[in-house]
Amino acid sequence: QWKVGDKCSAIWSEDGCIYPATIASIDFKRETCVVVYTGYGNREEQNLSDLLSPICE
């Protein structure tokens, strides 16, 4: 189960590419979260089910 502060990978809606991110907040009722893309600072809402394991850098 994901928690705030977890590192993950998420698909950015603008280009469909996968980027490393950190979970900033979680809404368990809606099963969504807000991620912050590492190195970019962009925030975006994602479905918890769409999150991927962190990418090894």
Rank of each mutant, 00 (worst) to 15 (best):
Q1V: 07
Q1L: 03
Q1T: 08
W2A: 14
W2L: 13
W2G: 14
W2E: 14
K3M: 12
V4Y: 09
V4N: 07
V4K: 01
V4M: 00
V4Q: 07
G5K: 00
D6N: 00
D6M: 10
D6I: 10
D6Q: 01
D6F: 09
D6P: 00
K7T: 10
K7Q: 12
K7I: 11
C8H: 00
C8I: 10
S9V: 08
S9R: 15
S9D: 03
S9G: 10
A10K: 05
A10F: 07
I11V: 12
I11Q: 02
W12S: 14
W12C: 11
W12I: 05
S13V: 06
S13W: 09
S13P: 02
S13G: 07
E14L: 14
E14N: 08
E14T: 09
E14S: 08
D15F: 10
D15I: 04
D15T: 10
G16R: 04
C17W: 02
C17Q: 15
I18V: 11
I18T: 02
I18E: 03
I18N: 01
I18S: 02
Y19E: 02
Y19T: 02
P20Y: 12
P20C: 15
P20R: 10
A21Q: 03
A21W: 09
A21C: 15
T22Q: 07
T22R: 09
T22L: 10
I23E: 01
I23K: 03
A24K: 04
A24R: 07
A24Y: 14
S25D: 05
S25K: 02
I26L: 04
I26D: 02
D27A: 03
F28T: 11
K29I: 13
K29L: 12
K29D: 13
R30C: 01
E31W: 12
E31P: 02
E31S: 12
E31K: 14
T32E: 03
T32N: 03
T32A: 01
C33P: 00
C33Y: 08
C33I: 08
C33N: 00
C33G: 00
V34Y: 05
V34T: 03
V35N: 01
V35G: 01
V36L: 07
Y37A: 00
Y37E: 00
T38P: 00
T38F: 09
T38G: 01
G39P: 09
Y40E: 01
Y40P: 03
Y40V: 07
N42R: 15
N42H: 15
R43F: 12
R43L: 08
R43N: 02
E44K: 04
E44P: 06
E44N: 05
E45Q: 11
N47M: 07
N47D: 05
S49G: 09
S49T: 08
D50P: 03
D50V: 07
D50M: 08
L51S: 01
L51K: 02
L51W: 05
L51R: 03
L52Q: 02
S53C: 08
S53A: 14
P54A: 08
P54V: 08
I55D: 13
E57M: 13
E57H: 12
